[in-house]
């Protein structure tokens, strides 16, 4: 059995970290899969998905580290008009941060329950907001 649902987010900031674990738990509960895997995947190239502990201090450190690694003020090649869009591509930092964080995460499902470590939460990262974003949650396995 494979079930996929989409979650839409309207992000509010240029950089934003959003805990989306409740969406994942709800999708697993609704899927009816007893043993298998749950995948969270973002459909965008300037967003990220990762797993970490939901602490204000860590969010600040992660945000700070990403900004240090990928500064806004740098001569990126992607800062230009894209003819296929007819608009500017001013979001190279978002693409690079997206590469660093990755676009998905996976968790086991056992006896109908999501298997997560106590400190683990799933984060959606916005790197080029505000924007309308879509994340898919796919639950697959034995019913």
């Amino acid at each position: 059995m494979v079930k996929t649902e989409k979650v839409t987010l309207l992000t509010e900031q240029y950089h934003q970290m959003i805990v989306i674990t409740p969406h994942l738990r709800a999708a697993v509960a609704a899927a009816g899969v007893q043993n298998g895997l749950a995948a969270v995947i973002t459909l965008h190239t300037t967003t990220g998905i990762s797993v970490n502990e939901a602490l204000e201090c860590l969010e600040s450190d992660i945000d700070d580290a990403l900004k240090r690694l990928v500064p806004e003020d740098h001569p990126y090649a992607h800062a230009r008009i894209l003819p296929s869009y007819g608009s500017t591509a001013g979001n190279p930092t978002g693409h690079i941060k997206s590469m660093l964080t990755g676009n998905h995460c996976l968790f086991p499902v056992s006896d109908g329950q999501l298997v997560m470590g106590e400190a683990q939460e799933v984060y959606f990262y916005e790197f080029d907001g505000p924007a309308r974003r879509t994340v898919t949650i796919t639950v697959m396995g034995e019913a």
Binding site: T11, E12, Y14, S84, Y85, G86, S87, G129, P130, R132
Partner: peptide, 20 residues
């Protein structure tokens, strides 16, 4: 307009952009 891939924007998104 030559904006070939422009997506539609709910007003809440426009207001979020303005606030940011």
């Amino acid at each position: 307009l030559g904006l070939y891939k422009a997506g539609t924007a709910p007003l809440q998104h426009i207001f979020n952009q303005m606030r940011a």
